[in-house]
Amino acid sequence: MLEIQNLSKSFFMRPVLKDLSLRAKDGEIVGIVGANGAGKTTLLRTLARISACDSGDAFLDGNSLIKGSHKNRENVLFISHHPNLYPVLTGEENLRLTARLYGHPKSADEITEALERVGLSRYRWDPIRNYSRGMLQRLGLAKTIIVPWKLLLLDEPTTGLDEDGSQLLENFLHRWQEEDRSMMIVSHDMSWLKRYCTVIYSLSDGVLNKESQS
């Protein structure tokens, strides 16, 4: 279960998240919509602890994600619209590093297989600096295969994907939906979110409002 408690964060003293609270049961897929600059990405970055917050905390199965030990995030995976990978290293090396950092080292075969599933096995020995935007998005999806996550934080997953890539993403999302896995997806596209999310909130002026629940 994910529980966000009174999370506050400001940028330039301007509050972006105001005393934000949320509860999501296991297997729920939480969607968050909002205009540009509403703080959707900030919320995810705060949960992933890339950004520091001013006050409040979040808990996954009772373990504090923000104030607690960094170990508590071992089941939380954040896929942002940045690659969050090293441009000089190859796709394969980046995935191997990711697996090791999450404490689950993977063999070369497992990594090749993950790259194959996202259609990148041909490019696995290329430095990812040479990858296109869509290929980098696919590489992000490959992270979800090699890291055993319990909570996935997805930031605008559709941007930059071509038709094949979108299809790939849909397949992944459908499978996770069927497997009842917990996710939090951020997007500006309400109708797209409705296809996957069990509950949708809108984020504006730093406050969450429940939009719909299926």
């Binding site: 964060k9 400001s10 940028f11 330039f12 003293m13 520091a52 001013d54």
Partner: peptide, 8 residues
């Protein structure tokens, strides 16, 4: 950069 980081 932004105040919160500068302060830290």
């Amino acid at each position: 950069g932004h105040y919160e980081r500068v302060a830290r």
